[in-house]
Simulated scan of single mutants.
Amino acid sequence: MNTRPTTPAGPAPLRDGVLLDEVRERLWAALGARDEAAAAAAVLGAHDAGAPAEELLLDVIAPVQARVGAEWAAGRLGVAQEHAATAIQERVVAALARQTPAPAPDTTAPPRRVTVACVDGEWHVLPARLLAEVLRGRGFLVDYLGAHVPTPHLIAHLHQTGADAVALSSSLPVRLPTAHAAVTAVQAIGLPVLVGGAAFGPGGRYARLLGADGWAPDARAAAVLLADGPHRPEGPPPDPGRALPHLLDQEYTLVRRARTRLVRETLTGLAERLPAVAAHTDRQRERTAEDLAHIVDFLAASLYTDDAELFTGFLTWTAEVLRARGVDPAALLTALDLLAEAQHDFPRARAHLAAGRRALTSVPVPAPPGPRP
């Protein structure tokens, strides 16, 4: 990175990422104190000192947000604290965007117009917002639609705006069926679709499965792909049913339809088999029901993709989160047994539940933590 001059009262010169480390720590401290002014000052001050907006977005704000998520998973941040930190981050991004001048237009070629949106049901909006700002900084014309965009509304927008490409973001694999519907609908009107986010799996494995025209691991890679593509192949749009023949067994559809019943019956079974669950307070029962609903949702997503690893990865992550919060995850095994009993006519679902059970029993139980200093 080139060294840039600073104001007399500014931070140290930008060299070897030292400044960005400093800015990350200042931003983290500000989020912990819920001090929006200090958070904005950390980022905007670094920008005034010469740090490029793209680096601040992707090398400061993005990793700090990842740290917020990790602290929530470890039980060191509550849900409200995580939401407050994320809201401050979003406003800091907006402030940085206002302070960043638009790049000079490229007179050699017209700018590409890209629509950036989260798929229907996806509320984790910050990755899409970061991508939108990176694209703007690189000279794209960007229509940023934000969180939870129903596919019919997305298609109506595209008909009105003349986009060259669409970038869809999703963080949760449970949104893959709706992401698939969005990808197929956009391609049906002749536009290419780039996807990104944790929902699409390691290396974008589910992006390929769902027929997206491209996948990017981060905003920088997405900007490179969008600068020259992705391009919609010639010919008729793909047939989603032909791409996922395993869906013909209807297991995904039937599990989704039975979600409420499965959660209710599994919760009742847990109370009958585990005295600790039977003694739960109303609030604890609500939390347990929420956890069961997530288990059913991820089971359904794994059936949609026909990938048991999607389900087992969620279960092992859940077990680690529960242990970090001082909750015995043993009830997860009983819950899987109850769900398997309810899926006696669904061989794929039973196989995924069995894989989940094996994954949970293979996870080592960590030693109890020592006293905190």
Rank of each mutant, 00 (worst) to 15 (best):
M1G: 11
N2C: 01
T6Y: 03
T6G: 15
L14M: 07
R15F: 13
V18F: 10
E25S: 13
R34D: 13
E36N: 03
A37S: 13
A42E: 02
L44I: 07
P52Y: 14
A53M: 09
A53F: 02
E54H: 08
E54N: 10
L56A: 15
L57E: 05
V64T: 11
A66D: 14
E82C: 02
I88Q: 01
V93S: 03
A94W: 06
A95T: 07
T100A: 02
A104G: 09
D106Q: 04
T107L: 09
V114D: 01
V119C: 13
P127Q: 05
R129M: 13
L131N: 11
E133D: 11
G137K: 04
R138G: 00
L141S: 09
D143M: 05
A147F: 09
H153R: 12
L154W: 00
H157S: 14
Q160A: 15
G162H: 05
A163W: 07
A165I: 04
A167H: 00
L168C: 01
S169Y: 04
S170M: 10
V174C: 04
L176S: 10
A182I: 05
Q187I: 07
L191M: 10
L191K: 01
P192W: 00
V193S: 03
V195H: 03
A198K: 08
A198M: 15
G203M: 05
A216Y: 01
P217Y: 07
P217K: 03
R220A: 15
A221M: 00
A222D: 00
H231S: 13
E234N: 08
G235F: 06
D239I: 09
L244K: 11
D249C: 03
E251D: 06
T253R: 13
R259S: 14
T266M: 07
A271F: 00
A271M: 04
E272F: 01
R273I: 00
L274T: 01
A276D: 13
H280N: 15
H280L: 14
R283G: 08
T288D: 09
H294D: 10
L310C: 07
T316E: 12
R323V: 12
A324C: 08
R325T: 08
D328N: 15
L333G: 13
A335M: 14
L336K: 02
D337M: 04
A340N: 11
H344M: 01
A349D: 11
A351G: 08
H352A: 12
L353D: 07
L353N: 00
A354M: 03
A355G: 03
R358G: 10
A359P: 01
V363A: 12
V363L: 15
V363F: 13
A367D: 15
R372T: 15
